[in-house]
Amino acid sequence: METTEDRIKAMVEGNKIFLFMKGSKLFPQCGFSNTAVQILNSYNVEYETFDVLADNAVRDGVKTYSNWPTIPQCYIEGEFVGGCDLLIEMYQSGELSEMVEKAAAS
């Protein structure tokens, strides 16, 4: 049987850029998730999201998967890169732009 961990692994490894968030890209349900979406949108790259409010197993499971206690969580090329605070800092430093461009070109 497919475990929650398998499902999470498939999502983060099957997409170059993936965001676990509250709500959807169009209707984020939390300010931190909204900030993460706005940052990713600014790069004009494709990314997929998963609404943890719709699935408690994933909501809890992703916290264990990355050993990170909060949502949103952003993954680039299968690697956990951070939540809202880290996305903001890496956006401002230009580091995130490099990571996103590299992933998009891969």
Binding site: F32, N67, W68, P69, T70, G82, C84, L86
Partner: peptide, 24 residues
């Protein structure tokens, strides 16, 4: 940076499991 945040999250693991729902 990521490790700094992990250290802070670990120091506050009990709070994050309990009453604290968002930590910036």
């Amino acid at each position: 940076l990521l490790e700094r945040h992990r250290l802070v999250n670990e120091a506050l693991a009990d709070e994050l499991k309990g009453p604290v729902h968002a930590l910036s």
